[in-house]
C-alpha cells in the first residue's frame, strides 16, 4: 500500500462520510456543511489524479459558490422538513428511492468490477499542464462549446433574475398571507427587495413569523444569529 493508495482511501472515506452526513443530518445547514466536506474530498481526489486546475475549480465552484447560494436559498425559504414528521408517502418514497439507488449502484459496481481494464500505452501520469486545458478550450472544436456554455450561463442568469426578483407590483391574492385570510392591502413600496433583506426583527408585522422561524433555524444550526 503506497502513499497514493492511502491518500485515496482517506479521501474516499471523508467523501463518503460527508455524503452520508448530508443525507442524514436533520438540520439542513448541518447537511450543507457535511456536503462541503464531501466536495473538498472530491477536490482532493482530483489532485490525486493530476487534475489540479479542476480541483481548484471544484473548491471555488462547489465548496464556494454553490454552497453559498444554497445557504442563501435556505435562509430565504425556512420551514423545512423539521417542522413536521414526514408524511406516509415520503416513507414509502424512501423505500423506492433506496431500491433504485441500490440497484443502480450495484449494477455499475458489478460492471466495473467485471471489466478487465487495460491501461493504454499512451496513458500518462502526473499533473496535467493547465496551459493545455486552455489551448483545448480555445481550440477549433471546443471553442464552440465554450461559447455555448456562456449562453447556458446567460440563460440561467436571466431566468434566475426573472424568477427570483420580487416585483414592484403587488402580488395578487396575498403572496405572504395564508389562503384563508382576506386580501390584505398591498404593502407599502419598499426600497430594497425583500428577498435580499437581512432577517431583522423590525420588518413589517405580517412577515415576521416566517422570518423569525428562519432565525430560529439559524440559531439552532449553530451559525450564530448574525447580529
Amino acid at each position: 500500500m503506497n502513499g497514493q493508495a492511502v491518500a485515496f482511501f482517506a479521501l474516499a472515506a471523508v467523501g463518503l462520510l460527508g455524503v452520508i452526513g448530508f443525507l442524514r443530518a436533520p438540520r439542513i445547514l448541518h447537511a450543507v456543511l457535511a456536503l462541503v466536506a464531501a466536495f473538498l474530498a472530491v477536490a482532493g481526489l482530483f489532485v490525486l489524479v493530476g487534475a489540479e486546475f479542476l480541483a481548484a475549480a471544484t473548491v471555488l465552484l462547489y465548496a464556494g459558490a454553490i454552497t453559498v447560494m444554497a445557504v442563501f436559498a435556505i435562509m430565504l425559504t425556512p420551514g423545512g422538513e423539521e417542522k413536521r414528521g414526514a408524511p406516509r408517502w415520503a416513507r414509502g418514497a424512501r423505500g423506492w428511492a433506496g431500491l433504485v439507488a441500490a440497484g443502480v449502484g450495484a449494477a455499475v459496481a458489478t460492471s466495473v468490477l467485471a471489466t478487465p481494464f487495460q491501461r493504454s500505452p499512451y496513458a500518462v501520469d502526473g499533473p496535467t499542464d493547465t496551459a493545455l486545458l486552455g489551448t483545448l478550450l480555445l481550440s477549433d472544436r471546443y471553442g464552440l462549446h465554450f461559447e455555448v456554455i456562456t449562453l447556458v450561463l446567460l440563460a440561467a442568469l436571466v431566468g434566475a433574475i426573472v424568477l427570483a426578483r420580487e416585483e414592484a407590483i403587488p402580488v395578487r391574492g396575498g403572496a405572504r398571507a395564508p389562503d384563508a385570510t382576506p386580501p390584505t392591502p398591498p404593502p407599502a413600496p419598499q426600497k430594497t427587495p425583500a428577498a435580499l433583506r437581512e432577517p431583522t426583527a423590525d420588518g413589517p408585522a405580517p412577515e415576521a413569523p416566517a422570518e423569525r422561524e428562519a432565525e430560529r433555524e439559524l440559531v439552532g444550526a449553530g451559525r450564530g444569529d448574525g447580529r
Binding site: 485515496f8 482511501f9 474516499a12 467523501g15 463518503l16 455524503v19 452520508i20 448530508f22 443525507l23 439542513i28 472530491v42 481526489l45 489524479v49 423545512g80 422538513e81 414526514a86 415520503a90 418514497a93 424512501r94 423506492w96 428511492a97 433506496g98 433504485v100 439507488a101 441500490a102 443502480v104 449502484g105 455499475v108 459496481a109 466495473v112 468490477l113 481494464f117
Partner: peptide, 23 residues
Amino acid sequence: VGLLLFGALLFALGLYGALAQRN
C-alpha cells in the same frame, strides 16, 4: 477501479437523495 467505484457510490447516493429528499 477504486475511483470508479467511489464514483458509482457517489452517484447512487446522490440519486437516492434526489429521489427521497423532501426539501
